[in-house]
Simulated scan of single mutants.
Amino acid sequence: MAEIVPSFALYGAGQRYSLRLVQKMTLKAIERILMIRHILLITFTTDASTEAIEQVREAFLHIPEHIEGVQAVEWGINDSPEDKNAGYTHCVLMTFQDEQARQRYLPHPRHEALKAIFRPLLGNIVVLDYPVLPPNSSVSSAAY
């Protein structure tokens, strides 16, 4: 029997799908249509140099060139006037084409090389992943 998925998992990109459609879809069908957003909130150690942080930034930004299915990487430095960043100063937002792309990324040698230069500079990190529908997506009976 197909596994039933909560309907909230398919809300996104300005679209909403009926509970009836969601109940007919298997998890594998849903994984084929959902993109994954991967967010890192970062603080660096006080002794991390500007040059070393720049090396980490460049390594992140070049990941899509080397790992299939990593669609985009953004790097940002906090500039919110709200003072609610809880001490986090930098962020990375990655977009994976689908679950398979995320699974390729995690053990990939480029990801391991990135961690090797990143971890010694890392003060603290929060990692959050969530699924989203691709822009302009639609779900049809072919998806399940």
Rank of each mutant, 00 (worst) to 15 (best):
Y130H: 05
S137K: 11
G87E: 08
T26Y: 06
E74Y: 06
F96S: 03
D83R: 05
K24S: 00
A29Y: 01
Q15T: 15
A29T: 00
N78C: 15
Y105G: 02
Y105V: 00
C91H: 08
A29V: 11
M94H: 02
K115Y: 13
D79Y: 14
L61H: 02
L21W: 06
L34Q: 09
S7Q: 12
M1V: 12
I125N: 08
H108R: 02
I33A: 02
I42E: 00
E74C: 06
T26A: 01
K24V: 00
L133F: 03
S137A: 03
L10M: 03
K24F: 00
A52C: 09
R102M: 15
S80W: 08
E54W: 15
Q55T: 15
L10C: 05
Y88T: 05
I63A: 09
N124Y: 05
R102W: 13
E112T: 14
L114V: 05
D83N: 00
E74D: 14
I53P: 12
T43F: 11
D79R: 14
L61K: 07
S138F: 10
H62C: 10
D98K: 03
A59E: 05
D83I: 07
H111D: 02
L41Q: 04
E3D: 04
K24E: 00
V132E: 03
A13C: 10
N85L: 07
I67D: 01
Q97L: 05
Y17K: 01
E31N: 15
T45C: 04
A142Q: 02
V126L: 04
Y11Q: 13
S80M: 14
N124H: 12
V132C: 03
I63L: 04
R57N: 13
G12C: 05
Q103V: 14
V56C: 13
R102G: 12
A143H: 12
L19R: 15
P6H: 02
P131I: 09
M25I: 06
T89E: 15
P120I: 03
Y88W: 05
E3C: 09
K84F: 07
F96R: 04
D129R: 04
Q55H: 09
L128D: 11
K115A: 15
A13E: 01
P64L: 10
R119I: 15
V73R: 01
L133G: 02
N136G: 14
L106Y: 08
D47R: 06
E82N: 13
A113C: 11
E65Y: 07
P120A: 08
K84A: 12
A29G: 13
A142K: 11
L10T: 08
S80F: 10
A116M: 06
I36W: 01
A113Q: 13
N85C: 08
E31M: 11
C91S: 14
L61Q: 02
Q15A: 13
P131M: 05
V139P: 03
L121A: 11
R37D: 04
Q103G: 00
G123M: 10
A48D: 07
I4D: 09
A59S: 06
A48G: 11
E112C: 13
E31Y: 13
I30H: 09
I117P: 00
Q55K: 15
S80H: 14
G123H: 04
T43M: 01
Y88C: 06
Q71N: 13
L93N: 10
H108Q: 10
W75E: 06
